[in-house]
């Protein structure tokens, strides 16, 4: 199965967006407007729900014509592309999303064709819908594929503590380091798991155009 690399699953969904001439604004614009306001921090739905390392949503308006001599063609539907790099397998990941963030999922996918009328709370129907939209990944590359999201968040937090410990214990007697490292080890074990996306990094330029 190409969508899997180690313990990480590469989920790719192409969800057709409702084309309703009577909808003002159109459903694709409603999705875009909603996503533009969606949090990226610890209150992001993908931080609240388990398992997402990195995920993106893209509104695909049409395919691009690359020029002659290739043929020009266009999509009849617009699609919502969901690309997620997540722990475990597809069904357990999607079930986790449906259980934790059903309203957030409905707010996005209710603009898509075939989404269950009763939304993500109807988990069997939600899973069936998502499977119909899934495109199997042809080749998935994940250099770190044996750690869960929580394990990585814990490792990143612990590394900062350990680096500080090493810097602050230079030149100290071995017995003191030995005593204190035991205390640090116990403390790290007792800390709660870090929140995903809790550390936000600001960038002056955020569009990521080709000149950046």
């Amino acid at each position: 199965m190409s969508s899997k690399s180690g313990n990480v699953y590469g989920l790719t969904l192409l969800c057709p967006i409702i084309d309703d001439p009577g909808a003002i604004p159109s459903h694709d614009l409603q999705i875009r407007a909603h996503l533009a306001k969606l949090s990226l921090g610890p209150d992001s739905p993908f931080a609240v729900a388990p398992g997402t390392h990195l995920a993106r949503l893209v509104v695909l308006d049409d395919v691009i014509y690359v020029g002659a001599p290739s043929c020009e063609e266009h999509l009849n539907s617009k699609y919502l592309v969901f690309e997620s790099n997540c722990d475990g397998d597809r069904d357990s990941y999607l079930t986790g999303l449906a259980r934790k963030i059903p309203d957030a999922l409905d707010a996005i996918w209710s603009h898509c064709v075939g989404y269950p009328d009763d939304g993500a709370r109807n988990i069997p129907a939600f899973l069936q819908y998502m499977k119909r939209c899934e495109i199997e990944t042809t080749f998935f590359f994940a250099p770190v594929n044996d750690k869960t999201r929580t394990q990585t968040l814990v490792a990143l937090r612990n590394k900062a503590y350990i680096a500080h410990f090493i810097a602050s214990h230079q030149g100290k007697p071995p017995a003191e380091i030995q005593r204190n490292i035991g205390a640090l080890y116990a403390r790290l074990k007792s800390l709660p798991d870090p929140e995903p996306a809790a550390i936000q990094v600001s960038r002056k330029m955020a569009t990521g155009g080709r000149n950046e």
């Binding site: 995920a55 250099p143 990585t152 990143l156 550390i199 990094v201």
Partner: peptide, 19 residues
Amino acid sequence: DYYFSAYPQATVNDVEAAH
């Protein structure tokens, strides 16, 4: 349109190093 990262402060080198 929307891009989420659980650990936006870290590069892949940071993640490997942390582990």
